[in-house]
Design a binder for these strands. Sequence first.
DNA 1: GAATCAATTCGACAGTTATCGGACTGTCGA
DNA 2: TCGACAGTCCGATAACTGTCGAATTGATTC
Lengths: 99, 99
Amino acid sequence: MRLNRTQRALILKALADPRRFELLQSIANAGCPFGCSQALATLPISAATLSHHVKELETAGLIEVRREGKFAYLTLRPGVLASVASFLASLESAARPGR
Amino acid sequence: MRLNRTQRALILKALADPRRFELLQSIANAGCPFGCSQALATLPISAATLSHHVKELETAGLIEVRREGKFAYLTLRPGVLASVASFLASLESAARPGR
DNA sequence: GAATCAATTCGACAGTTATCGGACTGTCGA
DNA sequence: TCGACAGTCCGATAACTGTCGAATTGATTC
């Protein structure tokens, strides 16, 4: 997957907040789609704040939010984290031309 | 290299600002140590702001600042970007247990 | 229809931060 | 020694953002 500068900036900003990152980790490590209520039980934040963070991760393209009736389920969007990771790694390798 | 939660958060926060990221890219892509004056010619910011960003990148552990007389030279610290990249990649692979 | 519950939206507020001008420090050349 | 110059430090300020309570929406159940 190819990311332009704007998308990269959005993603890095989304990853920068510790709670949001923790939420992303929970989503990634959960085997199945992650419910918002489940997230609320994990993180010491209010529902309003969780909703805000979910939206941030969603607009950054990091997660997919599937809404079913009353509930919302969060899943990692494949390829996005891998893309930014490989970009960062390529930055580093560019700095070591000899190796 | 192993990074704890705090260091990771610091690094991600340092990467989150677009100008700072651009600066880091310039440092990484430069074959030789990158001078502050060179950075000033590239970025549309004041010297004070540049100094602030340099300090942020330095305390995050992303760059090394070598001060020689009047000048300061910036180089990428090896392994840091690679570490955070591999961590992000591992997060993604954790979400795909089957593969 | 009324009650309940999950999630979102809406101000509002506090803390953070990117930015700058100006003052300062230290270095080098004349 | 005296400028000139690179970089840093110091408020100050404007913008951003993480957080919350309260109000709202939408769905489910009784």
